Computed example of a mutant assay.
Amino acid sequence: MPERTDWEAKAANLLKAELKRKGVTYAQLVEKLAEIGVNEKEANVKNKLSRGKFTAAFFLQCLTAIGVRSLQIGLD
């Protein structure tokens, strides 16, 4: 199994931080994704974020669903 890259870890951590900042649980994220027409199961979302393996489209869908309008990437 391929290892998670630093970039994948950064993307996953960034998304998890935004979820935490907005106070959104994985279950709530699934509901919010459904509201914008994206059907995911909570287990699938947990797996994607724990592995750091998801598409840029999924990343943008999640950010949109939780109402993130701007993002400070802060890659140092």
Rank of each mutant, 00 (worst) to 15 (best):
V30Q: 05
I73F: 15
A17C: 00
L71H: 02
L15W: 05
R51D: 03
G74K: 13
S50N: 15
F54P: 10
D76H: 11
L14V: 02
K10W: 03
I66E: 08
N47H: 13
E42W: 05
Q61K: 10
K46T: 08
E35F: 10
F58W: 14
A57P: 00
G74E: 12
L71F: 00
G74M: 12
E40V: 12
M1S: 04
L75F: 14
A43V: 14
S50R: 11
R51Q: 02
L19Q: 03
K41N: 09
L14Y: 00
L75Y: 12
E3S: 06
V68A: 06
Y26A: 01
L19I: 05
Q61A: 06
A9L: 13
A27E: 13
I36V: 14
L49M: 15
K22T: 09
A56Y: 13
D6Q: 14
T25I: 10
L29T: 04
I66D: 07
G23C: 08
N47F: 07
A56I: 14
Q61M: 00
A11R: 09
E8T: 10
S70T: 08
G74T: 13
K20V: 11
T5Q: 04
K10P: 00
V45Y: 01
K10G: 00
E40P: 04
A17R: 11
E31S: 12
E35Y: 02
G23S: 09
Q61N: 15
W7D: 13
E18G: 02
V68I: 15
L49G: 01
E3F: 00
Q28T: 12
M1R: 07
E40F: 12
E35P: 04
G23Y: 06
K53I: 10
G67F: 11
T64H: 11
T64C: 06
N47R: 14
T25E: 07
L14N: 08
A56C: 02
K16M: 12
W7L: 15
L29K: 01
N47L: 11
I66H: 05
K10V: 01
K46C: 09
Q61P: 01
V45T: 10
R69Y: 11
A56P: 02
D76C: 04
E40R: 14
E18P: 01
K16I: 11
